[in-house]
Nucleic acid binder design. Structure first.
Lengths: 292, 292
DNA sequence: ACAACTTACGGGGGCCGTAACAATT
DNA sequence: AATTGTTACGGCCCCCGTAAGTTGT
C-alpha cells in the first residue's frame, strides 16, 4: 500500500483511463499498468475493471480511503515542517464563502499594517478546501463556517493535529421566496422543513448532509444543485423558486425578492471557526485580532 | 514518507535504540540507520537525537501522526478485504472492560447455538484496542463504552469507514470511599467534583481527558494511576482512598466499602456502542441480538 | 575500550521505459 | 484497423547486508 501506488490508482480511477492518467502523472502507460497490477497483487483483489476502466467494489472502497490517507500524509509533512524552521514572513489565509470574511479581511489588513514586511494572501474556497489547505500547510489559518447545535464543535474532516476555536456565531434562517406561504411566519422549526425541497449548494449554503445530521432526520430532498459559491446566485435561485436554503440570517437583508425566517429555539446555529495547525508569527497576530 | 519508513521510525523511537529496533524488525542496524536517514532527508529535518536516541520536536510530531496514519492504512486494507470475499465462518468480538459484556456474551452464545459451525471468540481490551481491532479487521465487531452528553455520539478515534450504533446507556455515578463526606448525598454535580482527586485509570474507568471534555472544565487532577482493567482492583483503590472514579452506577452495588452517588441532571451518561466495519454473516446476526 | 551509530561498497530486486502482444470496439 | 491495456525484457536505481569507520561514554 505504497502511497505512490494509491496516488496513481486515484488518478487512473478519476481519468477512467490508464493512458490519460499516465500522461498526467508523467509515466508511460506501461508503468501505470504495472503499478495497478502491483497494488492489486498486494491487496489480493482486482480494483479496476478494464475497458471501460471502472472501479470494482473493492476499488470503490479504496477510493473512499485514499483521499483521507493522502491528506493525513501531507498533513504530517506540513506539521513537521511547521515544527522546525523559522516562522514564515507571509500569511496565507483561507475562508469558506459563508465565513465572516469581512472580519477576516479587516484583521489581515491590520496585521499587514503593523508588520509591513509580511505579504498577505486571502483565498475563498469551499469548506473542504480550507480545511485541507490548512492541514497541508498551504494556508496558515482558515475561517470555516458550518451549522451545528449550539455549544457543539463543528465537525471538520479529520486531518490530525488541527485546532479550531470559535470566532463567531449567528442565528440561522430559512431563506425562501418572498411570496412563499411560510414567509410571513416569525419563526420556523427545522423539523417542519424536512419535507420541503432544498437547493443542494454544498459550498454556498449549508450542505444537506450536515442539515440532516443536525436535525437528526432524513428528508431535506433536493432537485436543484448549485456548485458555485456566489451568494447572489444562490439567493436568485431561491427567489426563482428552485428551493430553500439555510443561511445565516444576515445575508438575506436588503433583498426584496427573498424572505429569511429565523429558526425557533432550540435551533442549530451558524458558526464560524478559526482553524490552524499551530499559530506562529503573523498568523498568531491575526488570530488574536479575530478573538472576540 | 513511505509507511515502511514510518514504521521503522516508530519502532526506533519506542526502543530508543537503532540496534534493538533492527533486531525487532528483522533488519540489520545499518539498514535501520539508512532508513531513518532517508526519512530525515525526505522531510529535511532531523527526527532523532542520537546517543541517547531521543525524538526531536519534529520527531515527536511525526510520532503523533504515525499511529493514525498506519491505522488508516491497515483499516483501508481490512475494509477492502471485507468488500471482496465470502463472509467468514467465525465471529471475533471485542469489548472494553466497562462495556456491557454480559449482554454481548449472551448474544455470542445464542449466535453460536443457532450457527454451530461458526467459531466464536471474545476479547476484552482497552477502548483503543477494540476500535483499532475492528478497524484493522482483527475483530468483526466491538462493544465500546464511554462517557458523553446524552444524545451525543461517543468520540471514537477516527479510522475511517467504521459505523457505530448505541446499544445501551446507564446513569453515571461518582464512586467514593464509604466514609467520604459526600457519600451521603443523593446526587452530585460534575462541576463540583473537578477539584477532587481522581484515579487515572484510562481502561478501567472514565479517562480523565474524556471527563474534562464532557464537563467543559479543567481540573480532575490525579495523583494515582491504575493501568489495568480489573474493576475490583479499581474499586479497592477507591475504597482505600486513592481517589475518585466515575463509573456506571451499577458496578458499585454489593460493595460495602464504596458508595456510588449518581450525577445530577443534566449529567453525562455512560453509553456503550456497537462498532463495526460492515456487518456480514455471523456478525450481523450478533448485532441484531444486541439491538434493544 | 566498548558500544552504538554512520559510511562505504557490492549485490540483488524492484521499478520504469521500450517494444511486442492481446483484446476490445 | 485502431485504440488501449498487458506482457516481456533490459537497464538503472534503490535498498539491504557486510564491513570498515567514527563518535560518544
Amino acid at each position: 500500500m505504497d502511497p505512490h501506488l494509491i496516488r496513481t490508482f486515484v488518478t487512473v480511477a478519476r481519468c477512467a483511463s490508464f493512458s490519460t492518467a499516465a500522461e498526467e502523472l508523467g509515466y508511460t502507460q506501461s508503468a501505470v499498468s504495472q503499478q495497478i497490477a502491483a497494488l492489486e497483487a498486494d491487496l489480493g483483489v482486482p480494483l479496476l475493471r478494464r475497458r471501460p476502466v471502472t472501479p470494482t467494489d473493492a476499488g470503490r472502497r479504496l477510493l473512499e480511503h485514499a483521499a483521507p490517507i493522502l491528506l493525513r500524509l501531507d498533513a504530517a509533512r506540513a506539521d513537521i515542517r511547521r515544527a522546525s524552521g523559522a516562522p514564515p514572513a507571509h500569511l496565507r489565509a483561507g475562508a469558506s464563502p459563508l465565513a465572516d470574511s469581512g472580519r477576516l479581511a479587516e484583521a489581515l489588513v491590520r496585521v499587514r499594517r503593523s508588520m509591513p514586511r509580511v505579504s498577505v494572501a486571502l483565498s475563498v474556497l469551499g469548506r473542504e478546501g480550507v480545511v485541507t489547505g490548512v492541514a497541508r500547510g498551504e494556508l496558515d489559518l482558515g475561517l470555516v463556517d458550518g451549522v451545528t447545535a449550539p455549544s457543539d464543535p463543528l465537525r471538520l474532516s479529520d486531518a490530525g493535529a488541527l485546532t479550531s476555536t470559535v470566532v463567531g456565531e449567528s442565528p440561522l434562517a430559512a431563506v425562501l421566496p418572498a411570496g412563499h406561504p411560510l414567509a410571513g411566519r416569525a419563526t420556523l422549526r427545522l423539523d417542519d422543513l424536512a419535507d420541503a425541497w432544498w437547493i443542494d449548494a454544498p459550498d454556498a449554503a449549508t450542505p444537506l448532509a450536515q442539515l440532516r445530521a443536525v436535525a437528526r432526520a432524513d428528508g431535506f430532498r433536493s432537485g436543484f444543485g448549485y456548485d458555485g459559491a456566489e451568494l447572489s446566485v444562490l439567493l436568485a435561485l431561491v427567489a426563482a423558486g428552485a428551493g430553500l436554503a439555510l443561511l445565516p440570517e444576515s445575508v438575506a437583508r436588503d433583498r426584496p425578492d427573498v424572505a429569511a425566517v429565523r429558526l425557533a429555539a432550540p435551533a442549530p446555529v451558524h458558526r464560524t471557526e478559526l482553524v490552524h495547525g499551530g499559530l506562529t508569527g503573523p498568523a498568531a497576530a491575526c488570530a488574536r485580532l479575530l478573538q472576540p
